[in-house]
Write a protein that binds this DNA or RNA. Structure first.
Lengths: 147, 147
DNA sequence: ATAATTAAGGATAAATTTGTCCTGAATTAT
DNA sequence: ATAATTCAGGACAAATTTATCCTTAATTAT
């Protein structure tokens, strides 16, 4: 569905939302270990989420790392997708037509539209906080560690 | 959602279903023009759909080209996806976890599952014939030509 | 048989995505 | 101030996807 970069972005953000606060910042090492992702690549992705402090924040230096504010924790999952440039995916034609609309639809359009709307609804109502809370409660996971 | 290769595969198959019969085979030139795709790349993709005559058939030589039988026209869209190796996509985790299941779900799993099931249902009930018929009727399209 | 037409299939190239590494900048502790 | 830690950002490398081209094989018409 999404690129690997976006998958890492989602998992990393959930982890940061779950553990990272202004006085408990999380380093890239801990993050990539927790979500099972390549550290350097993940670092690059987090830079994008950090732009204009849109989703996450970071500070350099000892005890530095990544964290989130209460405000951005309340952002919908869609905000991460936007930051990762996955907006196109959410209104793209299944058959890959550049312009596929009500007035000039592809043969899958009408049925696919209904499903895509649910996807968008899901990404717009689920907040980062929700996902972090669920994960904290221990009934869902953001990695495949057996322990 | 799908790779470009799969998008071309879907559009090409619909076109072939619409126009290609054993005594009216369609050349790669006409196909790629009709669906607005790169000819050589499309040819390569059609080779895959042709394997074991799974989806389409072809013959070389003058008046050669691609066509379909009544039988494969009745195949669900999913058959094309399978042939293109997109099966993984249809049961992949949104967050990219290698193993995401009822017993060890990611935080999006329960909600996402419901939507994915609808997608699968759609791909399994819509047949190639359906899409070709709709296109033939002229109310839906498989390219972006203005004419 | 020969020539013409069309797909098959391999080699290769271009573009994009994924991933690594290194230097520099920011921050903190001593 | 200096050293140590951690992120920022650029350059580069590997892998994958997308795309092209060329030679061969199959088929048909003459």
């Amino acid at each position: 569905m999404f690129s690997k970069a976006t998958e890492y972005a989602l998992r990393a953000t959930i982890f940061i939302a779950q553990k990272g606060t202004e006085d408990n910042k999380i380093g890239i090492g801990e993050i990539s270990k927790a979500i099972d992702s390549p550290p350097s690549f993940t670092a690059k992705i987090l830079q994008a989420l950090r732009k204009n402090n849109k989703i996450i924040r970071s500070v350099s230096g000892p005890n530095g790392g990544f964290y989130m504010t209460e405000k951005t924790r309340k952002l919908p999952v869609r905000a991460i997708l936007e930051a990762m440039g996955e907006n196109e995916m959410l209104d793209k034609c299944v058959l890959g037509l550049a312009k596929c609309s009500e007035t000039k639809p592809c043969p899958m359009h009408s049925k696919y539209k209904i499903i895509k709307e649910q996807l968008i609804e899901l990404f717009e109502t689920k907040t980062i906080q929700h996902l972090a809370d669920d994960t904290k409660n221990g009934d869902v996971f953001i990695n495949n560690k057996s322990k």
